[in-house]
Design a protein around this nucleic acid. Structure first.
Ligand SMILES: [Zn+2]
Ligand SMILES: [Zn+2]
Ligand SMILES: [Zn+2]
Ligand SMILES: [Zn+2]
Lengths: 142, 142
DNA sequence: TTAAAACTATATAGTCGCTATAAGGTCAAT
DNA sequence: ATTGACCTTATAGCGACTATATAGTTTTAA
């Protein structure tokens, strides 16, 4: 199986596959005489695993760590579960930060209707005043 | 006022101020004979405006557009309000995507307790199976 | 058979909003 | 005279790709 076929089967770009290889997430496959990469089923499974982790918004570093644990199958899975717990709490604090942000934005928006000159725009005035305060800065983290 | 003092007064790094200048968000200030930047109050207000926009998670491009409107004060503010509406809906779809993600993660986490070998870890098994589906991909957008 | 299309390879730069580092010039105080 | 705090520019790094450039290879079709 060459790179294009693998890419299509998993639904990623070929560049992404090479990128994961450079990052050490996907083991370097054998090469044909012409230098083309040749993949087997293991590679396909590994790649699909990575993609499913990415759908869960796990970082490449987190995926790396999961792989380390997978390769040591008789250890306790406590660390794996803990990794997921941490990830869940990251997601939750992102949600909280975004909800607080939404609140600020909605109240800002409420301070203007559409029939004003820019000069009198409630939105611009609201930003220009000091009534906006920094949050946990978790919304922008990532 | 030199760059360090301005930076301290607004709570940013001097690098950030030079960065905004390069991006065209902050007008190039006058220079002393030795090349040092000299800022006035207008610069301070402009910079504070940028920072408050950033707290609201507006992109530099969006801030740029707001500035264009500010510099044309007798136009209608409809576009400003619309920009904010768009931004609010971006934030809302990010929240929705993250909430869906949280749900997936929590259910995945529920499939394992801490007393297993990695081999039998419900979390890893859950990821390895095909039961994970892509979302709107809004959580990772940004 | 040959030419075009489709595929593969590497290397490099761009995205976003900073942040960090390097290597140097300027200024005040000791 | 030297330390230290400040300023300058230029360059690289973050994360997770994505895009482009350039070139070599294989497959398909005229
Ligand atoms: Zn995480
Ligand atoms: Zn308005
Ligand atoms: Zn926006
Ligand atoms: Zn487990």
């Amino acid at each position: 199986m060459r790179i294009g076929q693998l890419a299509r089967s998993v639904g990623v770009d070929t560049q992404t596959i090479r990128f994961y290889e450079r990052q050490g997430l996907l083991p370097p496959p054998d090469r044909q005489e012409n230098g083309y990469r040749v993949y087997n089923e293991k590679h396909g499974e590994r790649l699909a695993f990575i993609r499913r982790c990415r759908i869960l918004d796990l970082s490449l570093a987190e995926i790396h760590e999961l792989q380390r644990h997978q390769d040591d199958p008789h250890q306790s899975c406590t660390a794996v579960n803990a990794l997921l717990d941490d990830h869940i709490s990251h997601v939750r604090s992102q949600i909280a930060a975004l909800q607080a942000l939404e609140k600020q934005l909605v109240s800002l928006r409420a301070s203007c209707n559409d029939d004003r000159e820019v000069e009198a725009c409630g939105v611009l005035a609201g930003i220009s005043e000091g009534s906006i305060h920094p949050q946990q800065a978790e919304a922008s983290t990532r």
